Computed example of a mutant assay.
Amino acid sequence: MKNAILTEQQSLIWSSYQRMRTRLTGRLNRELAQQTGLSEADYEILTALIESPEPLRALALRCGLEWEKSRLSHQLRRMETRGLLTREECIEDNRGTVIHVTAAGRELAEQAKQVYDEAVQRFVIDVLTPNQLEVLGTIAETLLDQLEEPHQS
């Protein structure tokens, strides 16, 4: 195992990354909420459902989002109450649930995608050079590969 203590420079870089991630996430969330009334969680679920070629079972949605069962259950209940989606029993497995996006949910998701894309363009794409953007993509993919389950050290 490598030395587990961060150098001062590494600590500063990590701290800057954490502040940037928190601020960017907060800004994106506020824009979504103010312009569409959707939370990031709403948007994430609606996007996954719309991008799926067929209706998703709750288990597949939970695994795809990497959420805990209780978190997804509570979020789906709130979204169903707001008319964004419907849940029905799975014919193949009466313990399972199939999730469907409503017309209202689909319309809001389309609005949210526009808001989200514009915000990402404004706060990230327009600020970074093409080279920086490419490096950001490479860094993200490298870290995602490292975080894949199960990971062998």
Rank of each mutant, 00 (worst) to 15 (best):
Y43T: 05
T25G: 09
S11F: 10
T22N: 12
H74C: 10
A119G: 05
E54Y: 14
N29F: 07
N131M: 04
L59W: 06
L84V: 00
A109R: 01
E110L: 11
C63N: 14
L72Y: 01
L12T: 14
T81K: 15
R27K: 14
D42V: 01
V98D: 04
S16E: 12
G137V: 03
E66T: 13
Q114C: 07
H151Q: 12
L59M: 12
D117E: 10
T22G: 06
T138D: 02
Q111V: 01
S11Q: 12
L85N: 00
E80M: 08
A109S: 06
I139M: 08
N94Q: 14
D42S: 03
D117H: 07
M20S: 10
C90K: 05
T102D: 02
Q114T: 15
D93V: 06
K69W: 08
G37N: 04
E89Q: 13
H151I: 09
Q9C: 08
T81D: 13
L46E: 02
L6P: 05
S11I: 05
E31Y: 06
A60H: 08
D93E: 11
Q35P: 01
D93N: 15
L38E: 01
E44N: 09
T47E: 07
Y43A: 05
A119T: 11
E92N: 13
G26I: 02
H151D: 10
E51S: 09
T81Q: 14
S153I: 10
M79Q: 02
I50V: 13
L72M: 06
D126L: 07
K113Q: 09
R78A: 12
G105Y: 00
S16W: 07
V124C: 03
E31D: 12
T142N: 03
E148V: 03
S73C: 09
G37Q: 06
I139S: 01
E31W: 04
H74Q: 13
I125L: 11
Q10E: 15
L108F: 06
S11K: 10
R30G: 06
N3R: 13
D145C: 07
E107P: 03
I50N: 08
H100M: 05
T25H: 14
L32T: 00
Q35C: 05
S39D: 03
G96W: 02
Q9W: 13
A119R: 03
T22C: 07
L72P: 01
R77G: 07
R21Q: 13
G137D: 04
S73W: 02
N29E: 15
D42C: 03
T7F: 06
T142A: 07
L28Q: 05
L56S: 01
I50E: 12
Q146F: 11
L147S: 09
E118W: 05
Q121H: 10
L65C: 04
A140S: 10
L136F: 09
Q34L: 14
